[in-house]
């Protein structure tokens, strides 16, 4: 299958290991991955902050870039993010229709039909649960709100994790409760967001996991940012990175919050 990858703006700029792992994983499974280099962002930050007019050209850009990729032979579009795919699937057409652009709304719906979150693509489209990964760590999984309630991915990420060799999957208490990220909510209502984060971190710590994983770098940035601030000794790793890891080592080191020293 030829698959166009949405790096996501956050993945491209701040957390490239998630889209890199997505590419490596899909290539390992024998698929051809293409990266439409004109891509920028799905527009979710603008939409969810209420800037629906400003979001319109961003949505149009995304729809055009990936529409072209599909026209040029891509069979599917994948993003290592539940919330970006949620925006594509549930908000792009709404933004277009609100602006009276029915043509764009239809094009958005057409593209959305072939856009998948990573675990959806693997399990529901490609039909694999054992991706041949090896990850010898104690891991807990946080189902991100948009994977869970916008995309309804259900237990597909858990199916994938259960098939990973060496991985000990432990249950996260109150897993379906939001971590408190919520995009600009984390800054606009920073204290409420932090109160939600405190409870999520308590759940992660009580699970005794050494790694907390999820399908969204944004939520992991939030949970991981809190765990890092507390020097909790628990790290956050994107689901794609776990699935890309093999017993030959990780092509991409798996730390979101790198404990290694870096210089400018």
């Amino acid at each position: 299958m030829r698959i166009a990858v949405v790096a996501t703006c956050l993945g491209d700029a701040l957390f490239p290991r998630a889209p890199i792992a997505t590419v490596e994983l899909l290539e390992r499974l024998g698929h051809e991955v293409v990266f439409p280099a004109d891509q920028t962002c799905c527009g979710q930050m603008h939409v969810n902050t209420g800037y629906l007019d400003a979001a319109l050209p961003i949505v149009r850009h995304h729809v055009e870039v990936f529409g072209r990729a599909l026209d040029r032979g891509a069979d599917a579009v994948v993003a290592p993010s539940g919330s970006c795919v949620g925006c594509v699937r549930h908000q792009h057409a709404m933004v277009a229709r609100r602006a009276g652009d029915e043509g764009l709304a239809r094009a958005a719906e057409h593209g959305a039909e072939r856009t998948y979150e990573l675990s959806e693509l693997l399990v529901d489209v490609l039909g694999v649960t054992d991706v041949g990964a090896y990850y010898p760590h104690r891991v807990t999984y946080h189902p991100t709100c948009h994977s869970l309630r916008m995309l309804r991915v259900g237990d597909t990420p858990l199916q994938l994790l259960r098939a990973v060799r060496g991985l000990e999957l432990v249950e996260l208490p109150d897993a379906d409760v939001c971590c408190g990220f919520g995009g600009t909510f984390a800054v606009k209502n920073a204290e409420t967001s932090t109160a939600m984060l405190a409870d999520k971190m308590a759940s992660v710590l009580s699970s005794k996991a050494e790694v907390c994983t999820a399908g969204d770098s944004s939520c992991l940035m939030h949970i991981g940012g809190g765990l890092s601030r507390l020097r909790s000794g628990v790290r956050t790793v994107h689901l794609a990175e776990i699935l890309a890891s093999t017993d030959r080592g990780n092509a991409s080191a798996d730390l979101v919050f790198d404990t290694a020293e870096v210089g400018p």
Partner: peptide, 14 residues
């Protein structure tokens, strides 16, 4: 105020 941010990566995805 409550969370760290990681250092931006040496290399972007693109």
């Amino acid at each position: 105020n409550a969370r760290d941010l990681p250092a931006p990566p040496a290399e972007t995805f693109r």
